[in-house]
Write a protein that binds this DNA or RNA. Structure first.
Length: 1032
RNA sequence: GGGCGGUUAGCUCAGUUGGUUAGAGCGCCACGUUGACAUCGUGGAGGUCGGAGAUUCGAAUUCUCUACCGCCCA
């Protein structure tokens, strides 16, 4: 056994163990009527990139729960998979394409780009799965899914078809970035802002029937005059004074941090603002009052009445302080329009010319319309100042033409029923959310019942299964539907057609096809139907995850058995986007909730309190932590920080690749391409290295020393096990009688029972930090520091050896099981060794152990083993040990010296301490020469009174006395006592306290004061004696 | 602007129903290495619990206000 290394070689062990688990299919789950199912679906990580520490936490917690339940005898399925993450992934791939090959998506075409993204997916999925595996995640890898694979695609199609059939999918308007040249919507990241020279036109709108004293017109200013054709309101700030104050306050706070140079500039701005305020405030407040009073304006050129409204989008510090509102052609105005429930008038044709809504201006291009609008307003005398100004203008990356915000047709899912069903599920606690406070956000969000825009102008995703023809008249539409209804697919229930009456009076026909079917698709395309180019919002497929992964819409045995899943563990930023939608889709598709419980875990922040991300340079790769500290340390370290209130702050360091020194990350150094190590003075590179020179330097891993404690704990456990194994060569299993066991064994069994209960309850209630702490303290401070230390002399005693081995093996066995969900690798590695020397173990009756701790039975808290009084008694023993150690330390007595000790205690304590007397030698280097009610102080005595247990400890200092040190210790003790006595006296001197506090509290205080006074007297006596003695 | 959370030792965090001297790990100081472990052992120093007020005999703990930090929504 001596060849077992004294450090756990996690790298070697982990790969060996992973392979063994894999070969034994330890994490595979099957439909098994003999067991209860326990199911968790993984929040599928985006295939955008690699996992970070947040995923590390998320997956560690899931694995802890899953491993625990598996050991508890459930058929535990952890369903793994990844998410195609529509826009994020497409954007990443497109960016790379641009950087590396200078190609755009349009150069590759739809199929070309999608195939590139599949390549990317393959690469990153492999990497992600590798990360999960190395973390020890016990997913059922045979069941791996991807949100864009065939099984998920079938679920998406079936769901969409169902909603379409129920008329819950509809065509609606939404503001998008419109490229008038390509006549298509472009995504946000395809838009680049170009600064151009432009103008800021001021003009006025007349007020309809102003009251006396009110202005006859309102001035507004715009960079896009032609949009006034679509104006449906003019806004003024609801509290202009406050708005002015706020701007001024911001400027002033800027002033305090400004350099001298900037200062005069900012001061000028403040002065200008003040001047503006005194000039304009009364007028703006008057306008605000007019708005609240319902005053209307007449929109020139169009002769349309529009309201004056109060909205914070109007900025008193800018322009005229009033702003025209064109909801259909400006994102901010759109929001105002939603808030104020304004009409949204689209004045553009898809090609960028003015449509019929633009009246006389119909047919003009935007520049033409602009010119004419300005000229016509001028002719009406409504044109004021025209300022030259630089304007940020969004341009399409592709066509290089200006983007027009444009109210375009999009697909929506009607939410009112779906949202209500998901609210009900949480309100009546069919779905329980922990911590409970997250219910509110969930319910509030769903309560708005905003319809869900599900179409995305992307290529990567589930393409919307709708074909349409537009611009039909009523007869043509009816005819099309009639023809569609004759198709066999319609009769089979695989095809649905709806007629949509468009705003312009024309008809559109939409066809939805349930399954991918090229024959039907070609047939309807031949009829003139065109497939929608858009794809679905990525959350649409994620919303189906709990049932699509189990094979729905097929009625699989898995679905029957594993659904609804047991718990969902995720982070709070996707409660609405994902969790809520899974609930409503589960209810819609299956008629049952997707999971019984949801646990929301904290977020991982860096040392500066910022979220970790690759783009900030503070992202930590779990693999780097595993390489440095091991997978168990990563998991334990994360789990012990996972409380349910506090986000986790994790200071981050670079690890010098030359000398392994850890260098704290700062805001400054985390964005540098290379750094010099302050330890060895050598350069290393970071993720930002770009030049060949920098890239040739070795790269520093980004890690956190927060994992050191956990790594040390793994090592501690390893060494405790090593000790046990070293003393087991002659082990033979035996039945033990609990009642006959000595106190130390009873204590261990009782503690094991208590700890088992705490840990089990902790994990079942998602108290990961608490369970982890209980395990850490028990393993280190009780099992190692006391039980193993006590076992040493017992193992040396031939009469006691066998029994000690039996109990010790059992203790280690239980500890390994309890720790396994958190630290699977080291526990499995030890288990393997224990199985060699003690394959049969257990108290009271030994039994054969399974090959893997992973597949062993979770310990149960044994009521007969639990004994509160034994735990309390043992605590007395521990306290006495502590007292002796304190005295020794204060006297600087060398550890190898044995000191004589006298222990004054009650008879009942004597009963406990007497059998433990011999252990004071190994634990405190003490020989107990006197013990019991009559034990007295030594001639040269160092005393310590333990009032709470009514024990006095005396150490004989004859051989060791350091008078100065002892006097110092006693003086300190005395002043501490006096401080406490004073506090108590004050408390008891307070009549209110004595009169009003419960009697038992008062009595306790009195007794405690008496004790303290007694102690104080005795310490004074000791001091006196010592002084006299040293004076002699 | 609304909602939620946080603020406890140099750092990262615990603190159950209000009740003796507020805890842990890391870091720091002192001493210690012949057999489980220096990724260790023993002991020590260090905080009055963001601020103000209220309730109470008694508040880190309950309530109100406030400052700052973070997240979500708008």
């Amino acid at each position: 056994m001596n060849q077992i290394p004294d450090r756990f070689d996690h790298a070697n062990a982990a790969s060996r163990i992973l392979q063994a688990w894999d070969e034994a299919k330890c994490s595979h789950a099957e439909v098994n009527p003999d067991r209860k199912p326990f199911t968790v679906v993984i929040p599928p990580p985006n295939v955008t990139g690699a996992l970070h520490l947040g995923h590390g936490l998320n997956n560690t917690l899931q694995d802890i729960v899953v491993r625990t339940r598996r050991m508890q005898g459930y058929e535990a399925l952890w369903m793994p998979g990844t998410d195609h993450a529509g826009i994020a992934t497409q954007a990443v791939v497109e960016r790379r394409l641009k950087e590396q090959e200078n190609l755009s998506r349009h150069d590759l075409g739809r199929d070309g780009l999608v195939s590139r993204i599949w390549d990317w997916k393959a690469q990153y999925e492999t990497r992600i799965l590798g990360q999960l595996k190395r973390m020890g995640c016990s997913c059922d890898w045979d069941r791996l899914r991807f949100t864009l694979d065939d099984v998920c695609a079938a679920a998406v199609r079936a769901t969409f078809y169902d909603l379409f059939s129920k008329r819950m999918i509809y065509r609606g308007k939404r503001l998008v970035n419109w490229d008038t040249f390509l006549q298509t919507a472009v995504s946000n990241d395809e838009v680049e802002n170009v600064t151009k020279k432009g103008h800021f036109w001021h003009f006025t709108y007349p007020v309809i029937n102003p009251n006396a004293g009110e202005p006859a017109q309102v001035e507004i200013a715009t960079t896009r005059p032609e949009t006034m054709l679509g104006d449906t309101a003019v806004a003024v700030h609801p509290d202009p004074a406050k708005a002015f104050d706020k701007v001024e306050q911001e400027l002033r706070s800027k002033l305090t941090e400004a350099t001298d140079k900037e200062r005069s500039e900012i001061q000028n701005q403040i002065d200008a603002l003040d001047a503006r305020r005194s000039e304009m405030l009364p007028q703006l407040e008057q306008l605000r009052d007019m708005a609240l009073d319902g005053r209307k304006l007449m929109l020139p050129l169009m002769d349309r009445e529009i309201p004056l409204i109060a909205d914070t989008w109007a900025k008193p510090e800018l322009g005229s302080g009033c702003v025209k509102i064109t909801p259909a052609h400006d994102p901010n105005d759109y929001e105002v329009g939603l808030r104020a429930d304004l009409p949204m008038i689209n004045i553009l044709n898809p090609d960028g010319t003015i449509n019929a809504e633009g009246g006389l201006y119909q047919g003009l291009t935007i520049p033409q319309a602009r010119k004419k609008v300005v000229a016509d307003l001028d002719a009406l005398g409504r044109l004021g100042e025209v300022e030259d100004r630089e304007i940020e203008l969004p341009h399409s990356d592709r066509s290089k033409t200006p983007i027009e915000p444009y109210l375009a047709d999009q697909w929506f899912v009607a939410m009112s029923e779906l949202a209500q069903s998901a609210m009900d599920a949480v309100q009546d606690e069919r779905v329980k959310i922990f911590p409970e406070r997250y219910r509110k956000g969930y319910l509030d969000w769903l309560g708005e019942k905003r319809d869900w825009p599900v179409s995305r102008q992307l290529w990567w995703g589930h393409r919307i299964p709708i074909w349409s023809t537009n611009g039909l008249n009523e007869a043509a539409a009816d005819d099309a539907v009639a023809r569609l209804s004759m198709m066999p697919a319609h009769a089979a229930g695989d095809l649905q057609a709806h007629i949509d009456n468009r705003e312009d009076g024309s008809r559109s026909v939409y066809v939805c096809i349930r399954q991918e079917d090229t024959v039907v698709e070609e047939e309807i395309e031949a009829m003139g139907f065109v497939r929608d180019p858009d794809v679905l919002d990525t959350w649409f497929s994620s919303a189906l995850w709990p049932h699509s992964t189990l094979g729905w819409p097929e009625k699989t045995a898995e679905l029957e058995y594993f659904y609804p899943t047991s718990t969902l563990i995720t982070s709070r930023d996707i409660i609405t986007l994902w969790v809520a939608r899974m609930v409503l889709m589960g209810l819609n598709n299956i008629g049952d909730i997707p999971f019984n419980e949801v646990f929301i875990h904290p977020k991982i922040l860096d040392g500066l309190g910022e979220t970790m991300s690759k783009s900030k340079g503070n992202g930590v790769d779990p693999i780097d932590v595993i390489d440095k500290f091991g997978p168990d340390a990563l998991r334990f370290g994360l789990a012990r920080l996972a409380t349910d209130t506090q986000d986790v702050r994790m200071p981050v360091q670079y690890e010098c690749p030359h000398c392994e020194k850890l260098i704290d990350q700062t805001k400054k150094n985390r964005s540098l391409p290379k750094l010099a190590c302050p330890g060895c003075n050598q350069d290393f590179s970071t993720q930002w290295a770009e030049t060949e020179e920098d890239k040739s330097l070795p790269k520093a891993a980004v890690v956190s020393e927060r994992f050191e404690t956990a790594r040390n704990f793994v090592n501690k456990l390893w060494n405790a096990a090593r000790f046990v194994l070293m003393n087991m060569e002659d082990y033979s299993p035996q039945t033990v009688t609990i009642e006959d066991l000595p106190l130390e064994d009873r204590w261990l069994l009782s503690r094991l029972s208590t700890v088992t209960q705490q840990v089990t309850e902790g994990i079942e209630h998602y108290k990961f930090a608490e369970s982890t702490r209980v395990l850490y303290n028990f393993a280190w401070d009780e099992f190692c520091s006391f039980y193993v230390e006590i076992a040493k002399p017992r193992l040396a005693d031939p009469d006691k050896r066998a029994l000690t081995q039996a109990v010790m093996a059992h203790g280690l066995d239980t500890l390994l099981k309890l720790l396994h969900p958190v630290m699977p690798f080291v526990t499995e590695a030890i288990w393997e060794c224990v199985n060699q020397v003690a394959p049969e173990r257990g108290v009271p009756n030994p039994a054969a152990s399974p090959k893997f701790v992973m597949k062993s039975a979770w310990p149960t808290a044994v009521a007969e083993h639990h004994d509160e009084s034994i735990e309390r008694q043992f605590a007395e023993f521990q306290e006495v040990v502590g007292a002796i150690r304190k005295i020794r330390a204060s006297q600087n007595i060398p550890p190898r010296e044995t000191v004589p000790v006298a222990i004054r205690c009650s008879d009942s304590s004597l009963q406990l301490l007497q059998p433990m007397v011999s252990y004071f030698a190994s634990l405190a280097g003490a020989e107990v020469v006197l013990i019991g009610p009559t034990a007295t102080a030594f001639e040269t005595d160092a005393p310590l009174a333990l009032t709470s247990i009514d024990v006095d400890v005396h150490v004989d200092l004859e051989k060791f006395i350091d008078v100065e040190a002892e006097l110092a210790r006693l003086d300190k003790l005395k002043s501490q006592l006096e401080k406490q006595i004073k506090g108590k006296q004050q408390k008891l001197g307070n009549e209110n306290f004595v009169a009003r506090a419960p009697a038992d509290v008062v009595d306790k205080e009195r007794a405690s004061l008496a004790d303290l006074e007694k102690q104080s007297e005795s310490v004074e006596g000791d001091i006196e004696r010592l002084r006299n003695k040293s004076a002699q």
